[in-house]
Design a protein around this nucleic acid. Structure first.
Lengths: 189, 189
DNA sequence: TTAAAACGTTGCCATAGAGCAATGTTTTTG
DNA sequence: CAAAAACATTGCTCTATGGCAACGTTTTAA
């Protein structure tokens, strides 16, 4: 149950099994079905989430009813509605399982307690934020500058998992184009 | 020289002048002229930067030669080419002064030393990353979903400083449209 | 296992924004 | 302060993408 999380932390910091076992019980296992919501728009996010197996999508629905996907969390990834988690304001994002998914869930309070008391978790949180920020920057530059075809090629190179595992509809929503356009772009490759 | 930085930190954490004075000398004052580069593409970023007065732009130049602006750092803001700072790989970003600008510059090594040894700076760095990430998320959703006119209206409401202080050319590059389009959009308001 | 629902593809037309050129305005700099 | 450079605006045309409709395929669920 905790092997992946242990490996994740071990990969980023120095940690022994004893230290890990002292705090890992703060992470509670949770199974969610395909299409099940972990968080809905308007709810306050009270958890940080580690994905053991499966995949979550983080998205919002804009004024025109269009679903905009910001991020996918696959196996061994953390994800949360950070804005709501930090501010404790209602989330504008949904979090939903794309597949049958196994999670480790830690409450906001426990998580920040660990950030403040366990140096390894302090570092892990810093690393999560740094990496999330870097990924966001790349995505901003991609959305700002690239035509959709270029973005698709970038995805093929750097995020092949997204293309191989997810539906066109979902990929289109991530790229910010319609499924029609995506379908046409793929025939241009 | 250090008043703004002290206020910035005091605003976010508990700190007294004595503690501040023990580490503030790691931040070195630096003046840059309008249009002067602080970092160019291909250089490794070795600094974190606090803006005292003026304004910096963080941008890259894409394959088509188009300038894409990711972020502006106005007074009392931190900014750096984080990707390069963390990985110590050559930066794909430029950092350039838009106006005559007064900076406080801290070396990478000193900065991370303070992050690891001064709890207030550890927290400040966490806060910078959190806020930067939140801002990035909003921007991703904006670029993905909104028409340029909507983005412009959003800017008017939430970032009026960008509109009032910067040239159309620069604003267009931030919005990811051409100056022609921006000029037309403004006449639609 | 089969009917219903969701998804993917493609033709057609509509639209937002790009890009060039021409012109006037503002800013920069010697 | 004057000449040069950069910037802003607007007409015209072109292109990438949107959105609907139709149709075949895959997935879902009773």
């Amino acid at each position: 149950m905790y092997e992946l999380l242990f490996k994740y932390i071990q990969n980023k910091t120095e940690i022994d099994e004893k230290t890990f076992s002292e705090f890992c019980h703060y992470f509670k296992p949770k199974m969610v079905k395909k299409n099940e919501y972990i968080l809905r728009e308007g709810e306050v996010c009270r958890y940080n989430i580690f994905v053991n197996t499966g995949c979550l999508k983080f998205y919002l629905v804009n004024d025109e009813g269009k679903e905009l996907i910001r991020y996918f969390a696959f196996e061994s990834k953390f994800g949360t509605a950070l804005s709501s988690l930090i501010t404790q304001n209602p989330s504008s994002e949904y979090i939903q399982a794309i597949e049958k998914t196994e999670l480790l869930v830690i409450s906001r309070q426990d998580f920040f307690y660990l950030v403040d008391t366990v140096p390894q978790i302090n570092f892990i949180y810093r690393d999560i934020l740094e990496m999330a920020y870097l990924t966001s920057q790349e995505r901003i530059y991609g959305l700002q500058g690239q035509r959709a075809l270029q973005q698709l090629k970038w995805l093929m190179t750097y995020q092949p998992k997204i293309l191989s595992r997810l539906s066109n509809k979902v990929i289109a929503s991530y790229l910010g184009v319609t499924p029609y356009t995506l379908s046409r772009l793929k025939s241009e490759l």
